[in-house]
Simulated assay, not measured.
Amino acid sequence: MLSYFFNVMQGETTDTLPRPDVVVGSSFHPLAALAGYFLAKRRKAAFVFEVRDLWPETIIAMGKISRNGPVAVVMRQWEKYLYKRAQRIITLLPSAHEYIGSLGIDSSKVRWLPNGAVITNFNHSADKVRGGPFTFMYFGSHGVANGLAPVIRAFAKVRKEYPALACRLRMVGSGPEKTALRELAESLSTGEDISFEPPVPKSAIPALAAEADAFVVNLRDLELYRYGISLNKMFEYMAAARPILFAGNPKNNMVKDALCGITVAPDDVDAISKGMVAMVQADPYILRTWGSNGRQYVIEHFDYQKLGHDFSRILDEAIANKADA
Rank of each mutant, 00 (worst) to 15 (best):
Q296L: 00
I152V: 15
F49S: 01
W55G: 00
T190Y: 02
M238Q: 01
W112M: 02
M238S: 03
T263W: 03
V277C: 07
Y297H: 03
H301E: 02
R159Q: 11
A239V: 00
F38N: 00
E183N: 15
D21E: 15
V8Q: 07
F49W: 00
F28A: 11
R43G: 01
V277E: 03
R130K: 11
P206A: 14
V158R: 00
N232K: 03
T289I: 01
Y225W: 14
R288K: 15
V71A: 14
D106S: 12
L231N: 00
T120E: 15
E197M: 14
N146Q: 15
G36I: 05
T16R: 15
I60M: 05
S230D: 00
K64I: 04
A265Q: 04
R111F: 04
A214Q: 04
E197H: 12
I229Y: 02
L307S: 06
E57R: 11
E223N: 12
I152M: 13
I60Y: 07
F311N: 13
S27Y: 10
A145N: 11
K64C: 07
S273E: 07
Q87M: 04
V200I: 13
E192V: 09
A33F: 04
S195Q: 09
V255Q: 06
E183D: 11
V217W: 06
S187R: 13
F136I: 04
A45M: 07
V144C: 10
F122G: 00
G143N: 11
L2N: 05
Y37H: 08
A61L: 08
F311S: 12
G294L: 00
G63Q: 08
A45R: 02
E236F: 04
P201L: 13
G132K: 12
I119N: 01
I100T: 03
R76Q: 14
D268S: 14
A247D: 06
S66K: 15
K84T: 08
N253P: 08
D283V: 06
P266Q: 11
F28R: 09
G104R: 14
S102I: 04
P198K: 11
T179L: 15
L92V: 07
P20C: 10
S66E: 12
Y227R: 05
G63I: 09
L184K: 02
G25D: 07
R52Y: 11
S125M: 05
P199E: 10
N218C: 11
V277W: 01
D53A: 09
A247M: 12
I194K: 02
G69P: 06
L103I: 03
W290V: 01
F235C: 00
S141T: 11
M62K: 03
F139C: 12
S203K: 12
A204C: 13
A35C: 05
E317G: 12
F38W: 05
L222E: 08
A86S: 15
S107I: 03
P199K: 10
Q305K: 13
S3D: 06
V23P: 08
F311R: 10
K306L: 14
D267Q: 15
V217S: 06
V8H: 08
R88N: 06
K128W: 11
M9I: 05
R52A: 09
E161D: 13
N68Q: 14
G101F: 05
L93I: 04
E186F: 04
V8M: 08
T120D: 09
N218G: 05
I100D: 04
M279L: 13
A185E: 03
C167F: 02
F6P: 00
G294W: 01
K256H: 10
G294V: 00
K44V: 01
R19M: 13
L82Y: 09
A149K: 13
